[in-house]
Design a protein around this nucleic acid. Structure first.
Length: 602
RNA sequence: GGAGGCGUGGUGUAGCGGUUAGCAUAUUGGCCUGUCAAGCCAAAGGUCGCGGGUUCAAAUCCCGUCGUCUCCGCCA
């Protein structure tokens, strides 16, 4: 080794020792006769001090610049009294250098490696990702990721789970997300597809009798990206035989609790994790992944205002819509500008606006609110009785602002969910010191796709229904609930799974309910259906999004910050410049002729 | 497919119709033995993303385009 110690480990215990360090120049402070260099490696920083007395070393040190790679030999010494650096793990000591070797020079980096990542354009960070990853913050994220994955591997391995790799080159399935496809050279005009998840394979492993399978699996989806979505991502994929939903949840919940104890200083808000039905989540939070770090539940005014004099509310209810709202705690007297911001904010979710009532004072002795106790543009449309009912239903206290949205249910839900998160941030009531897990269960098995005029699977077409609901599959498909479950952390969906159908006659009924042709089913899923005829055990599983979990624990705003080499929002890699054209020879070998016109990306 | 934000020396930004395009930091040279965002002195460094247009005059206004970010659609 070219080093005896790392740059993060020397303490007063090492004083007097001869050591050799190697690393990068984080910063150089040149005082002429005395040069300080902060030497950096993955493990930390150590100040190395080069005195004029060490003539050879001092001469070399004069040429040294930031990010040079050095090897230094010297003696560990206590820093003079009063010159310790408490911000540095190694701040009590310094290495008095006897010999410096420049292992490699470095061009001036395009941005400060030792500075703050937030101050640099992300595109530049991505182009020079190998420099960006030198930052302690980024190294810490990768270390955290490693520790999370290692914990999961060890936890499951010690419980008789087998880690099994499944193919990356697989078969395209038109259902679901778009596939990345790979042309076959040996089979002209045919294509592999990269897996969106190992779903079918892990079910086949259950048929094979593996019983307990997991994989840290790379998955691929060719869809438009977001801060929390990459075209390739990593999930813990897991499947078990002879289990019911409760068994999977218990296993994962226990694993997550122990994982948090290991890698996060934050306490879990509630154990066991609260279990919320899909219907309840939608009613109270407007979303199937509620952020439980703060209360602020939606309230429903539909019955209160259905006959009111306020046309917007009355008409919304009459048209089959809803009138629901939230309370902005302490918001009664916010600036008009802030209310205008909220109005603009809700429009991106399809709402036409937000009605507001500031409760500025207490009700009178009769329980009614006088004009001086309210601040609102809509209060004039309601009688005192209705106003009191609205305020009581909302739960608002003096000083609060009531925000109300009236529209069709899906718009109301989506708008109020986003409004709840926004107002939570504005009011500063989101408790970030806790980990708020919950399970969401009892999802509908099917949903009606208005565009395609047919029923489709909410989760995927292998998810089974609750035992008591199978009889309703044909008569009332929308009422069938699935044995499916999502696990939510601080409002992020970090995982989801289900118990699968393992009997082919039930699978046939479901495909029929989905309106799939026999031939279509055979072509797409024939292998799976055939396998089920050879003794498939009852089974189910779950997938946890590793990138999202690490991002949450790292408190990163984007999953890009916990992926070593992520892609941009348009799916490009700025470092290697991908995707890129290929040669005509390669195309010919793959039997591919490019269309002259570039079809617009939809 | 749609909406919005951003693009000015290496980096981060100010300027928003007439400026020798300002500042900070990095860079280069000089001075300096206790700094740790070292300090002091000096220098160099910009076709204001690109292409059109409006105007006597464009970094600034308009149109297009490219890149990037966020969101909607999409993500069984």
């Amino acid at each position: 080794m070219l080093k005896t110690h790392t740059c993060g480990e020397l303490t007063i215990e090492n004083i007097g020792q001869q050591v050799t360090l190697a690393g990068w120049v984080n910063r150089r402070r040149d005082h002429g006769g005395l040069i300080f260099i902060d030497l950096r490696d993955r493990f930390g920083l150590t100040q190395v001090t080069i005195n004029e007395d060490a003539a050879g070393a001092h001469e070399v040190a004069n040429q040294i610049r930031n990010e040079y790679v050095l090897q230094v030999k010297g003696t560990v010494q206590a820093r003079p009294e009063g010159f310790e650096n408490d911000n540095l793990a190694t701040g009590a000591i310094e290495v008095i250098v006897e010999e410096v070797t420049i292992l490699n020079a470095a061009k001036t980096p395009p941005f400060y490696v030792s500075g703050n990542a937030d101050e640099v354009d992300e595109a530049l960070r991505l182009k020079y990702r190998y420099l960006d990853l030198r930052r302690p913050r980024m190294v810490n994220n990768l270390v955290l990721r490693h520790n999370i994955v290692r914990f999961i591997r060890e936890y499951l391995s010690s419980r008789e789970f087998l880690e099994i790799e499944t193919p990356i080159l697989l078969k395209s399935t038109p259902e679901g997300a778009r596939d990345f496809i790979v042309p076959s050279r040996m089979h002209a005009h045919e294509f592999y597809a990269l897996p969106q998840s190992p779903q079918q394979l892990k079910q086949l492993l259950m048929v094979a009798g593996i019983e307990r399978y997991f994989q840290i699996a790379r998955c691929f989806r060719d869809e438009d990206l977001r801060a929390d979505r990459q075209p390739e991502f990593t999930q813990l994929d897991l499947e078990m035989s002879f289990v019911d939903a409760e068994d999977i949840r218990a296993l994962i919940e226990k694993m997550l609790i122990e994982l948090c104890a290991e890698i996060s200083p934050k306490p879990i808000q509630q154990v066991p994790f609260p279990i919320i039905s899909y219907a309840e989540a939608l009613e109270k939070y407007g979303i199937d992944r509620p952020d439980l770090r703060f209360e602020m539940q939606l309230f429903n005014l539909s019955t209160v205002v259905k006959d009111s004099g306020f046309g917007v509310f009355k008409n919304a209810v009459a048209a089959g819509g809803e009138v629901k709202g939230i309370v902005y705690p302490g918001g009664a007297n916010v600036a008009r500008r802030e209310i205008d911001e909220l109005t603009e904010f809700v429009k991106q979710y399809g709402a036409k606006g937000v009605a507001w009532i500031g409760v500025t004072g207490a009700p009178g002795a009769d329980g009614f609110y006088g004009e001086d106790a309210l601040r609102s543009q809509i209060s004039k449309f309601f009688g005192p009785e209705e106003l009191r009912e609205i305020i009581v239903t909302s739960g608002a206290q003096a000083g609060d602002l009531i925000l109300i949205v009236a529209d069709k249910p899906s718009v109301v839900a989506q708008t109020l969910h986003n409004l709840r998160m926004d107002v939570g941030r504005r009011a500063g009531i989101i408790d970030n010191s806790k980990l708020a897990f919950c399970w969401v269960t009892d999802f509908p098995l099917l949903e009606y796709n208005e565009e395609d005029k047919r029923w489709q699977a909410v989760h995927h077409p292998f998810t089974t229904a609750r035992d008591e609901d199978w009889e309703k599959l044909e008569s009332a498909p929308g009422e069938v609930l699935a044995k499916a479950y999502d696990v939510i952390l601080n409002g992020w969906e970090i995982g989801g799974g289900s118990i699968r159908i393992h009997r082919s006659e039930l699978q046939d009924r479901l495909f029929a309910a989905l309106g799939l042709e026999r031939a279509e089913v055979e072509a797409q899923f024939g292998h799976l259906l055939e396998a089920f005829q050879y003794g498939a055990p009852p089974h189910g599983g779950i997938a946890l999004g590793i990138d999202r979990m690490v991002a949450l624990f790292a408190e990163a705003t984007s999953i890009r910050d916990v992926i070593a080499f992520p892609k941009t929002a348009t799916g490009t890699d700025l470092m290697v410049n991908a995707p890129s054209p290929v040669t005509e020879a390669q195309l010919k070998e793959l039997h591919i002729l490019l269309r002259p016109e570039k079809t617009p990306v939809s």
